[in-house]
Amino acid sequence: MTSLTGRWPGLRRPQRKYIPVLATLSLLAVMYGVGAVRYEAFSDGQVILNVFVDNAFLLVVAAGMTFVILTGGIDLSVGSVVALTTMLSASLLQEQGWPPYAVLPFVLFVGALLGFAMGCIIHYFEIQPFIVTLAGMFLARGLCYTISTSSIPITDPFWTSMAQSKVRFGEYFVSPSVIVALVVVIVGAYVLSHTRLGRNTYAIGGNPASALLMGLPVARTQITVYAISGFCSALGGVLLSFYMLSGYGLHAVGMELDAIAAVVIGGTLLTGGSGYLVGTVLGVLVLGVIQTIITFDGTLSSWWTKIVIGALLFVFILLQRVIGARKAR
């Protein structure tokens, strides 16, 4: 777990900076406990693995979002980029007849390029990320419908095999997408804790003016995080198309908000500079467990998911505020 929390030698006692992550972890434990007590089959290990299976794409998208939020930015375009990726993949595979090994790098490149372009606009024209990525959101969503207004099913053998195959551990299993998502998280956490790019990301989120004065490559870093987010969105889109086996302009509507919620519940400060990818994983799990509990209950409307997420967001933003206030003495 060391690489995930960005810990390094020399730290012995748990520090205040880990409090948000620990809070999320306790919340997850409590929710899991409640589920296990109330519903018989809940404590089966496969239940928690299914949460991963059902949310692998969200995990990847939220990982990219974490980079952006750490710099103090926001990326509203991710849901649309996910949809565009499913659409592009489906169209290229089914209608253009491209082979999977060409489609995959192409859609990932398109996602990264979109992020790169938004990052450039944000940095060089000094426009709020909110508005730039809002424009990107409309653009990407609109592009989906220029490809097709209806859903395109995917029948490509590679895609169907990815959808159906299982990675087994004894009696338990996950989908290959989960492995991809975990690799993304581990690589991301390593980049954040052990590379200059990662540390510069934190520095910019902490104090952009200082970062500039300390000679850090602010422009490069800022643009790179949006490119990372775009790449992760595209990869999330690929994973979603494995899961759905279709491309559709209405996929992943509102997913940017789920991703932001997961990042915030995972303890990353919206103002930037503080947070860990492991928190984001926990945040995604929290969202997933809420859904699972509601499914298990059977009597609750699915809107309860939104209500609980809303309440949790309030609580976590207040928690951040309280911790932030204490830090400032």
Partner: peptide, 24 residues
């Protein structure tokens, strides 16, 4: 003109961190 969210050590060395194979 430093970053309050980073450790003291990191504030001294950020941008010039000693690295091995790209790893800080």
């Amino acid at each position: 003109n430093l970053c309050p969210n980073l450790s003291v050590a990191e504030n001294i060395f950020i941008g010039r961190e000693p690295r091995r194979l790209g790893a800080i």
